[in-house]
Design a protein around this nucleic acid. Structure first.
Lengths: 222, 222
DNA sequence: AGCAAAACCATAAATATTCTATGGTTTTTC
DNA sequence: GAAAAACCATAGAATATTTATGGTTTTGCT
């Protein structure tokens, strides 16, 4: 009987242990699961690289939030996914995320294009088992909340360039418009003008910035 | 016990009958299904309008290909979906399509944004029942092949304007480049230049048009 | 092979779009 | 109610796109 090797990465050890107990105890059709776990970015990288030199992992289960023990720049599960795609291209990648917000999901769908995306509140024994089967046989597997975000994105044909996205981002974190010139290579009237266009695009003309933030969050841009 | 009313539209009567037999015989949790059927665009419009004046349909199951008995312009299930959204906004719309090509699915996701999309080869008793439950309780419901197309679209961040799309469309139907000026409001060098850009965008530089067609079909643009 | 049609490419001029600089008005904040 | 920020409008500058033109290469056909 074939062994499917899985690496589960999460900074909460209880979580990966839960995955491990459930999946190693499951009787799959034609294979059994053997699972490794990791808590940090560095540890995960090492395990993925080691495996890739021999037999790569079949599946990588990645949390987005990771422990960052070293002093370097903070790394997320998204970074890990991007890296894993390079060093272990045959491994299926599934995100196990607490977030069901549009922005996160859209971003990961573009940077990593994972074979699966599960929102943690929707994970149970049955969905875990279904995910493994689906991802191995005919990806993708998305839980319902992920699908809702994906549907929202698909339903619209709005494409923003980098400057627009930066403006929305800075709006969302409360940066004052006049301060945005420090982070965006546009003049102040340029930024103001784009904000006007964005409001028009999102149908919140004549309203304040809060309406624009709400609208763009609703549409998955921030 | 509540009655869920469904209208199934398909020009093959056997198909809608199949849906009807399966779903009316299913014991759902807290409701039962009562299904009407229609074969043509006109008939469907009448039924949807009639219902909307009183109690609108809970679910509309729409095939894309429809019979067009009248002499007017041919109408598709997509047109029907767009119209139904207006006159019966509370009805859930599910497409039951033979097509699993990217273009069709992407187009419908934007124009109708249906609560469900099932590729016919993937429809069976179990998936039909799951679809009804999911669509009523927590949409959306997409079958696996639809998900594959959706995933492909989500993974890329290419946005084409109307002229680009027209060029790709005309390429795909074999229009000669020099004839495109008749359908697209651009000069010949303008069209040639955009073709070059498209090839570069899709990574098929230095190759012939066929490669461009293949690439854009693969990415869901035609 | 050899011809003609179409596709392809490059450049300068024309056009359209976007950005900046500037100065003003309105709204928010304390 | 005064200062700060946001908002708006306009002219000119800077970019990007399109056209016109003329050429080269490829394709299709006999």
């Amino acid at each position: 009987m074939r062994t499917v090797r899985i690496l589960a990465v999460d900074d909460h050890e209880m979580t990966t242990l839960g995955y491990k107990f459930i999946l190693e105890d499951t009787e799959f059709d034609g294979f059994k699961v053997q699972m490794d776990t990791a808590k940090t970015y560095e540890d995960s990288v090492k395990r993925i690289e080691d495996a890739a030199r021999g037999i790569p992992y079949d599946i990588l289960l990645l949390d987005i939030q990771l422990s960052n023990p070293t002093e370097g720049p903070a790394k997320t599960g998204e970074d890990l996914g991007i890296y894993a795609r390079k060093v272990s291209p045959d491994s299926k990648i599934v995100f196990m995320s607490s977030f069901s917000d549009n922005y996160r999901i859209n971003s990961i769908m573009q940077t990593v294009d994972p074979e699966g995306y599960m929102v943690k509140t929707e994970i149970d024994q049955k969905s875990l088992q279904a995910m493994v089967n689906t991802v191995l046989n005919s990806p993708p597997y998305y839980t319902q909340k992920a699908l809702v975000a994906i549907r929202k994105k698909m339903a619209q044909d709005i494409s923003l360039d980098e400057n627009d996205k930066k403006i929305l981002y800075h709006l969302s974190i409360g940066t004052k418009t006049k301060d945005m010139v420090k982070y965006i290579s546009l003049s102040l009237p340029g930024i103001e003008n784009r904000k006007r266009q964005l409001k028009s695009l999102f149908g919140v003309e004549k309203q304040n910035d809060q309406a624009l933030i709400t609208a763009s969050r609703d549409k998955g841009f921030i």
